[in-house]
């Protein structure tokens, strides 16, 4: 490692700390969200420096991209004060930003006991993290074993082999966690179709033109990432988030393609990944093998199938998060949309 590399790494570390601090200390929540996006991108850079491009891709797509969109969109929803909603005068755009999104008052602990407890908790967490780093096995743990069995896994990229074959169980549960999160959101608002978009403030002709051109390219890129996972960094999560991004952009551009998707297809799409994992796991059990143990001659094909299903589910789930927030935003109504009551209330 040359001196320049070291300087670069130190700069990235410092930048991460500064961005984390600014994210927490910004007086305006909108600023916090933007700092969080910057933090995610810097984090992706740090993962690249740690020679983990798979994680970097996922961090950039999920941590910076999807979470950023969700945060900014949530702020748009919650920035509107409920009492000045439908009945009162349309808010001026300037006044809208000043309410909930501003947190000038720092969170104050009302007693010394609370702050001491919180501080002790943080110290304990820091100790556990440092101890965990210290306890990492020297020889790289199971790296040698994974490398030895790579030829039997059906793929050439070690990360995909571990994620989808050796530790497929973990990935299955990860997809399950996403599914649960989505169920939670739907419990809060009822299982709805992707409600119709009627953008009160159409984004102008350019975005619509861009997304019409880009959507096919993005879907193709998602398929490419999925296929690439076999031999290089890429895979279901990155591809899935890209698919979700297509949906989000379509919605933002006011192209009502996703609204046409019938409810059955949505339900199927949301459960597809989890279900496909489960089906292959049960098939393996019926064939007297361990759960999710793939036959080695078919492993590559099975992994591709499972990954494709997971990517579709992840895409649907991530888009459902956004669509739910977005339809909430429109149904709550405010100065912009007060004139036109929305029939697509999520609780229906």
């Amino acid at each position: 490692m040359t001196l320049l590399d070291q300087v670069f790494d130190i700069v990235v570390c410092l930048l991460l700390l500064v961005l984390a601090w600014r994210t927490l200390s910004a007086t305006h929540l909108y600023q916090s969200a933007i700092f969080f996006i910057a933090f995610g991108l810097t984090m992706a850079l740090a993962w690249v420096r740690l020679a983990a491009p798979d994680v970097a891709l996922a961090e950039a797509a999920i941590g910076a991209g999807l979470l950023g969109v969700l945060l900014v969109d949530s702020l748009r929803v919650f920035a509107r004060p409920p009492e000045t909603g439908r009945d009162s005068e349309p808010n001026k755009p300037e006044s809208r930003d000043n309410d909930v999104t501003t947190s000038r008052r720092r969170p104050q602990f009302n007693s010394a006991v609370a702050s001491v407890t919180a501080g002790a908790g943080c110290l304990f967490l820091a100790y556990v993290l440092v101890a965990a780093i210290h306890d990492l096995p020297d020889g790289g743990g199971l790296t040698a074993q994974a490398a030895e069995n790579l030829s039997r896994s059906g793929v050439e990229h070690p990360v995909t082999a571990v994620l989808l074959n050796f530790r497929g169980f973990d990935t299955w549960l990860e997809v399950g966690v996403l599914f649960l999160a989505m169920l939670g959101i739907f419990c809060a608002g009822g299982l709805v179709g992707f409600s119709e978009t009627e953008n009160p403030d159409p984004p102008g002709p350019l975005l619509s033109w861009l997304i019409r051109g880009l959507a096919p390219v993005m879907i193709l890129t998602a398929a490419y990432l999925l296929w690439l996972g076999k031999l290089a960094p890429g895979g279901a999560f990155q591809a899935g988030i890209l698919l979700a991004a297509v949906g989000i952009l379509l919605r933002l551009a006011g192209i009502p393609l996703m609204d046409r998707v019938p409810r059955t297809v949505i339900k199927l799409g949301l459960t597809f990944g989890f279900g496909t994992f489960l089906v292959f796991g049960i098939i393996a059990l019926l064939a007297d093998k361990a759960f999710l143990e793939y036959p080695s001659e078919w492993a590559g094909e099975v992994i591709l199938l499972v990954e494709a299903a997971a990517a579709i589910s992840i895409g649907f789930t991530a888009f459902a998060f956004f669509a739910y927030l977005n339809s909430r935003d429109q149904s709550t109504g405010n100065g912009d949309t007060a004139g036109q009551p929305r029939e697509t209330n999520p609780s229906q």
Partner: peptide
């Protein structure tokens, strides 16, 4: 070319928002 398309669109979107405000 993708960065060109995305960048000019983002610029247009921000500029348009600022202009309307």
């Amino acid at each position: 070319s993708l960065a060109l398309a995305a960048g000019s669109n983002a610029c247009y979107a921000i500029g348009r928002y600022a202009f309307l405000r």
